[in-house]
Amino acid sequence: MKYILSFVLNGQPVDVLAEPTDTLLDVLREKLRVMSPKRGCDEGDCGACTVLLNGEPVRSCLTLALSVAGQEVMTVEGLSKNGKLHPLQRAFHEHYAAQCGFCTPGMILAAKALLDKNPHPTREEIVEAISGNLCRCGTYQEVLEAVQAVARGEYAEVKE
């Protein structure tokens, strides 16, 4: 049995057919072809599938798709504006905070959720915010430095 699922994806309303057993990750990747959330472990351990649900980071592999009806979902695709990268994206790029890149979308969204609530976090607060996202390349130091650079205001939002 399929249901029509309506929610807001990166600021745009979307309608998509979903089964009750579909996860948000299934719907994003396989139905809507939004590919930045990665299917890493598919059981909530690795954080590569992180998306923002009403601004909060959630594991999209553990979130049933139908549970996000009427709510706001954000992926990395929604970060850049008019082709201009978000400050976090530029900082990650310039600090080499993405090596193979598999964990990067989740890392960026975890960092965004932190900075939206707490624009000037301490080292410990940043570490805690990204500690649910595994990176096998071990880029944690570079991610930390990138987030700290954004928090210091080194990557101002590009004017539209």
Binding site: C41, D45, E128
Partner: peptide
């Protein structure tokens, strides 16, 4: 069998000074 019991270092395991 999973990343819950095969433990990788996370940001929280990072030395304060590298």
């Amino acid at each position: 069998e999973t990343f819950s019991d095969y433990i990788l270092t996370t940001a929280a395991d990072m030395p304060k000074e590298m």
